[in-house]
């Protein structure tokens, strides 16, 4: 591959109510094969996708929240969560699933994937991207 591009996947919707979050996650996993510089962003109701303790047993839907834990294996190691979106929803970082990736170049040390960022920081990040997908 001659040149890597910066890809950003923006997740704005809550899980289960629509098919967008699951489809978006699958696009990220498939896209990971192209070895680009990938990050994911969780804003608005998208922050609910990372809520810990999801249990779909009574509602009969597929619980795809464990799949976010596989993102590290796919070398998707930067998940930006907007602080303002969390605050508006009465959530803190402790309400989210702990997600990590293993750094091969650092003796497989486990490092956190989730980074809480401000709206202003996200705005700058967005500007840097070559390709942006929105789910």
């Amino acid at each position: 591959m001659s040149e890597t591009k910066k890809f950003m996947y923006i997740n704005r919707r809550p899980p289960y109510g629509t098919v967008y979050p699951l489809e978006g996650l699958e696009v990220v996993l498939i896209g990971a094969a192209f070895e680009q510089e990938v990050c994911m962003v969780f804003i608005s109701d998208g922050v609910f996708q990372l809520r810990q303790g999801q249990d779909t047993i009574d509602s009969g839907m597929k619980n795809f929240s464990p799949t976010y834990r596989a993102l590290g294996d796919y070398e998707v190691t930067r998940l930006y969560v907007e602080r303002e979106s969390l605050e508006e929803r009465g959530l803190t970082e402790a309400d989210l699933m702990p997600l990590t990736w293993e750094d091969e170049d650092d003796d497989w040390a486990e490092k956190p994937s989730i980074q809480i960022v401000s709206r202003a920081q996200l705005s700058d990040l967005l500007e840097e991207q070559d390709v942006v997908f929105n789910f």
Binding site: L29, A32, A33, K62, N63, F64, P66, T67, R69, A70, D73, Y74, W108
Partner: peptide, 18 residues
């Protein structure tokens, strides 16, 4: 069972190696 997906081949290869 753990991740609710079947891994892509290169993810599988790496994980098997580990």
């Amino acid at each position: 069972e753990e991740y609710q997906i079947a891994p892509a081949v290169r993810v599988l290869t790496k994980a098997i190696g580990k």
